[in-house]
Computed example of a mutant assay.
Amino acid sequence: MPGVDFRGTAGNTGTGIVIADGFQTSSGVSTPKVVLSTTITFDPPSLTTGAFAVSTAVTVTGVALGDSIELYPPYDTDGVIYQATPSASNAIKISLFNANSGTKDLASGTWGVVVKRRV
Rank of each mutant, 00 (worst) to 15 (best):
K116W: 06
S87T: 06
S30D: 12
P86D: 05
W111Q: 02
R118M: 02
T59Q: 14
G14L: 08
K93W: 00
T61H: 10
L96W: 15
A51N: 11
D5N: 15
Q24N: 03
V4A: 14
D43E: 13
A107P: 12
T25E: 00
V113C: 02
T39D: 04
F52M: 05
T59L: 12
A20W: 03
T61E: 15
R117Q: 01
S89A: 14
I69R: 05
S68N: 09
V35A: 06
N12C: 06
K93G: 02
S26T: 01
A57W: 01
F52S: 09
G66T: 08
G3T: 13
A107H: 00
G3P: 00
A99V: 00
A84D: 01
T61I: 10
M1F: 06
P86H: 01
T39W: 09
Y82I: 14
A53W: 13
L47H: 13
S108N: 08
T85S: 04
A99R: 11
S95M: 12
Q83G: 04
S108K: 05
S37V: 07
P45K: 07
S55V: 13
L65R: 15
V63L: 06
I92M: 10
I69D: 12
K104F: 05
G16L: 11
A57R: 11
S101C: 01
T110W: 00
Y72R: 06
F52W: 14
E70D: 05
K116E: 08
T110D: 05
D67M: 07
T85V: 11
V35Q: 02
V80F: 05
V60E: 09
N98L: 10
K33S: 12
D43G: 07
T13D: 08
A51V: 01
G28L: 04
V115R: 01
G14Y: 06
V4I: 15
P45W: 13
G8V: 12
S95R: 11
G22A: 05
A51C: 03
L36N: 04
I69T: 06
G66Q: 08
I94A: 12
R7H: 11
S89D: 15
G112E: 02
S95K: 06
V63Y: 14
N12H: 15
F97C: 04
G8D: 09
L36Q: 09
L36I: 02
L36W: 08
A51W: 09
A64D: 10
V34C: 01
G50A: 14
D78M: 06
S89E: 13
